[in-house]
Design a protein around this nucleic acid. Sequence first.
DNA 1: CAGCATCCTGCGTGATACTG
DNA 2: CAGTATCACGCAGGATGCTG
Lengths: 121, 121
Amino acid sequence: MAKTNPARSCPVAAFQKMISGKYKLRIVWDLKDGPRRYGEIRSGLLRGSTGSAEITPRVLSRELKALTESGLIDRKDFGEVPPKVEYRLTRKGKSFVPVVAAIREWGERHLGEAMLTEAAE
Amino acid sequence: MAKTNPARSCPVAAFQKMISGKYKLRIVWDLKDGPRRYGEIRSGLLRGSTGSAEITPRVLSRELKALTESGLIDRKDFGEVPPKVEYRLTRKGKSFVPVVAAIREWGERHLGEAMLTEAAE
DNA sequence: CAGCATCCTGCGTGATACTG
DNA sequence: CAGTATCACGCAGGATGCTG
């Protein structure tokens, strides 16, 4: 099946793998203003969804773990009851924020508004 | 199942939908230097892969169609035998190139090299 | 040459329920 | 509060063969 090591093939492939998942980019974006707790991230992800899109803990958990293993975010467990866990961007994660900003800016300009004038120059 | 219109929820969701697929970003990148034919794109995608990763026409075809419907690229069919089809970036697609460039640059810096110093500041 | 038709498989994502 | 366990499903993506 030809695995095709993503990191070796080209940067965009590794990038896509890293941000694959519906929430990873939004999580990074949410974390740009400072550390957030698990529940806060979850609530933040619900905001912005059209309606009643419930993000399940299983999914959020996986995304956070993947981001942690990617080295974009860092998990801080306060280790006591009641449980309290904070997630924050690492240096790598912070360096990634401008990229997300560029994505958002382009998206707002070309995806939010009416898509007219995409004539082929 | 709560559809959650992607374009309405937030720009990054729409962005992710638009570039979902392993080759879309690479196709856009390949097209930045000018129009390319179907076979050229296909060959170009093979270059950069570690080994024998054959991209099937079905997949490439779908990616190209999706990109066309997204308004990023434009399909020009010369309409005669032997078949000749060229793909080129639209204005929208060209405006997207810098974003891909930012992605590539970040990826080369943080994914290609050794990933040291991602300490949580 | 530039595709389309058909079949198959793994994985990402969601629903639901339970726990330290 | 911050998760894990289990089940189920749609769909991206590959294999293979055929066509105008």
